[in-house]
Design a binder for these strands. Structure first.
Length: 155
DNA sequence: TAGGCCATCTGGTCCT
DNA sequence: AGGACCAGATGGCCTA
């Protein structure tokens, strides 16, 4: 029981380390471990060709509906009025692709951090032996930390 | 087959 | 100007 506070401190610092590491650097080796070669290929800088295949010009245009001369990206309900959009110059294709790559990396590091966080939860949390979803991971983590805090407070 | 989860793309907004 | 973050949409995969 006395180890509890150490455990919490450990967990805390580990989470810190993990998140800061994931956010500050992009370790391709780790990526290979986490996502496998196929994904890696698709994320290496040169392979931004993959993202090209899945990028605005190549795939997204085919994946998302394309209506004639303009590309309709459904669901941009937040898009302001047509007038205000007219005033705003569109991002260049090159810049858009770069932004997409960054966003992809960002979301992957987030997913990786969640995977690692999942490892700190006791196995009881994953019922039926299925891996926890992202949301479950976050919710159970909160639950777990609360439990640990309660235990600490009652010692 | 429907529904859940996930990865990805994208435009908007805020910040440096 | 460009990067980071956010939220909506879409399509693929998987499971009940």
């Amino acid at each position: 029981m006395e180890n509890l506070s150490e455990d919490i401190a450990d967990l805390d610092s580990e989470i810190d380390v993990v998140t800061s590491r994931m956010l500050s650097e992009w370790d391709w080796k780790a990526q290979e471990r986490a996502f496998g070669k196929k994904d890696l290929e698709s994320t290496s800088p040169e392979s931004s060709f993959d993202s090209m295949c899945s990028s605005p010009e190549m795939s997204s245009r085919s994946r998302h509906q394309s209506f004639g001369h303009f590309s309709y990206v459904p669901g941009h309900s937040r898009t302001p009025s047509a007038t205000s959009q007219k005033n705003k110059p569109k991002m260049s294709t090159k810049r858009r692709m770069k932004a997409s790559e960054r966003e992809k990396m960002r979301m992957r590091s987030l997913a990786e951090a969640l995977h690692q966080l999942r490892d700190y939860l006791p196995p009881d949390y994953s019922k039926r032996g299925q891996p926890l979803t992202k949301i479950q991971t976050l919710k159970y983590t909160i639950e777990y930390i609360n439990e640990l805090s309660d235990m600490l407070n009652h010692t």
